[in-house]
Simulated scan of single mutants.
Amino acid sequence: MIRPRTDADLNACVKALADVQAADRYPVDWPDDPRGWLTPNDLAAAWVAVADGAVTGHVGLARTGPEPAQSLGIPLGGAVTRLFVTPPARRGGLAARLLDEVRVAAGGPLALEVSDEATAAIAFYERHGWRRFASTRARWLNSAGEPALLHHYLSR
Rank of each mutant, 00 (worst) to 15 (best):
Y153I: 02
A69G: 09
T6W: 02
P4A: 13
W140F: 15
L10D: 05
A118K: 01
G93M: 09
P75V: 06
I122V: 15
S143R: 11
D33E: 12
L150D: 03
A54L: 09
L61N: 11
L112P: 08
V48F: 08
A45Q: 14
M1E: 13
L38T: 11
D19K: 11
R132M: 10
A95H: 09
L43S: 14
L149K: 03
E67F: 01
L38I: 07
S143T: 13
G57E: 06
H152M: 00
L99D: 11
G36I: 05
A144D: 15
L83S: 12
A45E: 15
H151Q: 11
L110D: 09
G78E: 10
A144C: 00
S143H: 06
A111T: 13
F124V: 07
A12S: 14
R97V: 05
D7K: 02
S115D: 13
P87E: 08
E67L: 12
R5N: 01
T86W: 05
G108K: 07
P88F: 06
N142E: 03
Q70Y: 03
L112T: 11
A45T: 01
E101I: 00
N142H: 00
K15F: 01
R156W: 00
D19L: 14
R35G: 15
A89Q: 08
R5H: 07
V14W: 03
P147Y: 00
R63S: 13
V14M: 03
V59G: 06
H151A: 03
L17P: 08
E113N: 13
Q21A: 14
G108A: 14
L72G: 02
A51L: 03
A118L: 14
A111R: 05
G93E: 10
